[in-house]
Design a protein around this nucleic acid. Structure first.
Lengths: 189, 189
DNA sequence: ACAATTTCGCTACCAGTGGTAGCGATACCG
DNA sequence: CGGTATCGCTACCACTGGTAGCGAAATTGT
């Protein structure tokens, strides 16, 4: 009954469960000091963990931030209802999460690091974007390019506001954005 | 006839006109190596100019990139015509310029540096965003928050696509984006 | 022609930053 | 208790943005 492929417990000291602590420390540090100010040393110190320990789990700062975002956003919850309700809920989810302390700055930071780093872009695309893309495609039954445009508009707008003003978008503007997007994506392509 | 305030020529070696060369070198380097890879040393080398000379004119890398973008975008040309035509032309201008080699990556890079740097955010906001904001406000007669939302949607979407894929948005998607924005901003608030 | 002044290019340098190597200590399994 | 893998720690490396100080060049006024 020893299932080696998945649950064979290897010998040696087991890894401590530090993911949650590190993720929380990451967001807190980014929130306080900004993306550039959130040094790996500082994140490690805030988590009460050695920097080398962090590098044993995540190969780079970008990978850590990406995993932190994946953990924060979580899976797209099942949202029954009309197409419009589904889209509105997705936009609202994005806006809410990006508004949480540190999330917007972390997202924007890793996003732009990715512009210059193909490896990181791969990580970001695979781990963070792809799951949502598939979920949206399954739920809406639209061609991929339309889903991509929807994501670009939603996330891009929210991040741009965050970057320019340093503060998340106010509710009224999110409502206006939602209305505009709904009018365009209400019916299928 | 000596107008001291503006044109009194000071003694000493005059400054060489290197702005154009440096701007071109900046965009070329960013295009080839990405924002993070575009070192000040490399930009200086590409321009055939000493790094210290660059730092005598621009106080920081962010300021250089910002001025480079200001130079690239230039003033918003007068665009007579209907409201819709004006908006469409503005979107098209943004999409065209951001598609130019290096411009999108430079924009995204300085944009995210600004998230963590209040001083740079001030420079970016004052030198790059404010002029366009005023021009759009004058031309459209809309309240500021609606103009800001328009800019967030337009620039944010284009930059997000650039960041995620590494390539500028294709024409068909720009057209879809334009149509969606026009439907929302066609009539005054 | 000559001093004054300012900029130029250059080398050297500094404080951080992401990331790595190697150490003894520690926690777990058999 | 022996084997193994992880932990925290210190030290270290390559590189980056940015600065200081130097002699050389270019311009002005006398």
């Amino acid at each position: 009954m020893t299932r080696e492929t998945t649950s064979a417990k290897p010998p040696g000291r087991p890894r401590a469960g530090i993911d949650a602590v590190v993720f929380a420390a990451t967001l807190k540090t980014v929130h306080k000091l900004g993306y550039a100010g959130a040094t790996m040393d500082r994140i490690a110190a805030a988590a009460g963990v050695a920097k080398t320990t962090i590098y044993r789990r995540w190969p780079s700062k970008g990978a850590l931030i990406t995993d932190c975002l994946v953990d924060t956003f979580g899976p797209l919850p099942p949202m029954p209802g009309s197409r419009a309700e589904y889209l509105a809920a997705a936009i609202d989810l994005a806006a809410t999460k990006i508004s949480e302390p540190g999330v917007g700055a972390a997202f924007a930071g890793v996003f732009v690091d990715a512009v210059s780093d193909a490896g990181l872009r791969e990580i970001l695309s695979t781990r963070l974007q792809a799951p949502y893309l598939r979920a949206l495609q399954d739920a809406l039954g639209e061609p991929e390019d339309r889903i991509l445009l929807f994501v670009d508009i939603t996330v891009g707008t929210l991040l741009h506001r965050m970057g320019m003003t340093g503060a998340p978008m106010v509710e009224a503007d999110v409502a206006a954005l939602t209305e505009m997007i709904l009018r365009h994506f209400a019916e299928r392509a």
